[in-house]
Design a protein around this nucleic acid. Structure first.
Lengths: 269, 269
DNA sequence: CTAGGCAACTTGTCTAGACATCAATCATGA
DNA sequence: TCATGATTGATGTCTAGACAAGTTGCCTAG
């Protein structure tokens, strides 16, 4: 007979009580090869047609197995090239010092975080637009709905790799006619805290709410996210003297290359 | 040249410069219906066969469109029943006050967060175990690798719904023989900060690093996570007088029902 | 009235093939 | 030597159909 090595183990036609679908068995086998190192990180896995031959199934079944691994974030695919085991990316840690001024950032090395801002490797694609406040935004700014806001949409890249997608708002009144309203000034040294400071507004408190979800297709494309990688969402609200002076409704981070760090001063028991 | 079959294939194609694949257009349309409320949360979307009839495509194309929505966490599917828009679960917001004592929590209503602790609706399944410190843990506690730690594994449920999976460590020396080492005392009023306080240790600072990823199969089962929902991971390090007194290597939250809130005092510019 | 089974739905799995699109390689001609 | 076009082989998209398996409700036999 022909070689019965790999294929026939997955061709069980016996109706077992808890028989696993073949695409899952194939996914398990490929996962095993990757985690065991038989397929090293970054290397191509066998092509769909050769897997079709090896496991003796239709191509659709192979593609379903690969979909499982893609959803787990274990492999990624490039059209025309192939599918390969996903290499681990360097993670960028974003700590509280990202809201400090440049000088303080340099002095704070306790977290091991580094500042990329204005170091040449950080690039920001900024689009500013005037929009009417939605009821939610109006309530946060304590203004009437419809009040004009300056909407800032930013795509931040480090070393050419997209890292952050931000949608944020200022009250137009507070920034109109100032350098802050100029999108070409991004990236602004010190970020939005420094922008507000240049207007004489001293930030007293920032509150962030962190969530996670799967990206939309648009976000996945903008951040070049492989399938199976969620996004971290941070919603920011910036206060000065108890009033809200800035709101970021969604800062979107690729979860495979970003993590957020916070400090809680706990001398309040 | 295949003339008949080729003409057949293009029978309903719109000549567009950036033609979108059919399955993505269908996914967009279904997403629009769900987000616009035409399909309310929790309701079944049309069956695959009726969508096949509506969009005049093969069933595989419909299934691919639904896969897109499932990967976004927008819908979930039950074998034999159908596919429905994922209902929005009540979201539990975890703010900094979760590390405060009970009295302060009651007085702090600025965030709208509520305390479930010891109110009867919060239940904790606790397993304590003595383990040897790994090199990483030993470095954080500034002890020799192999030093015995008390490992706490907690599954927290609110109203019977799993909410949090925690693995945390104390130095065994600091807690051995005290009520803190008794897993039956969970849930402890005031959490680990109060536990340390009962030992005379005053927490001065807590640092948390937040990440997100897809759950492992074990986590998905323990937290009863549907497909397409990531988990939020918080790594906590608790300090007293500059020394690390507690480490939580992974607090796992289901991202569809939890969000984390932090405050950054920004009077440091 | 109820228990059981059947019928009619649903999604899950799988086959076999066609053509489109993209990337890399190789042969060829300027 | 170098640009370019053809070829090859990879994944992407889509069709048409078959049978498996889970869920629900109805209808009938007891």
């Amino acid at each position: 007979m022909a070689d019965e090595s790999t294929a026939d183990r997955y061709r069980e036609r016996v109706p077992a009580p808890h028989r696993q679908p073949r695409y899952r068995a194939i996914a398990d086998e490929l996962r095993r090869r990757i985690t065991a190192g038989a397929i090293p990180a970054g290397a191509l896995i066998p092509s769909e047609s050769s897997l079709t031959a090896e496991f003796r199934v239709a191509r659709g079944t192979i593609r379903e197995a690969i979909n499982v691994l893609r959803a787990e974030g274990l492999v990624m695919t490039e059209h025309g090239r192939g599918t390969y085991a996903r290499p681990n990316l360097p993670v960028r840690r974003l700590g509280p010092e990202r809201y400090m001024s440049q000088r303080q950032q340099d002095g704070d090395e306790t977290t091991g975080a580094r500042s990329f801002r204005n170091s040449g490797v950080e690039q920001v694609n900024a689009e500013y637009q005037e929009v009417a406040a939605t009821p939610e935004l109006a309530e946060m700014f304590e203004v009437e709905p419809g009040t004009v806001l300056l909407q800032r949409r930013l795509l931040t890249s480090v070393y050419g790799v997209p890292q952050q997608l931000t949608t944020a708002y200022y009250l137009l009144d507070t920034v109109a006619g100032t350098p802050v309203a100029d999108p070409n000034r991004e990236p602004w040294p010190g970020g939005h805290v420094a922008q507000l400071q240049s207007l004489g507004i001293l930030v007293t408190k920032i509150r962030e709410v962190v969530q996670a979800r799967m990206p939309t297709i648009d976000e996945a494309e903008a951040l070049r996210l492989p399938a199976g990688v969620p996004v971290l969402i941070a919603n920011r609200r910036t206060y000065a003297d108890g009033r809200t002076v800035e709101v970021a409704t969604s800062m979107v981070f690729p979860a495979d290359r970003a993590e957020l760090e916070y400090e809680i001063p706990a001398d309040l028991t």
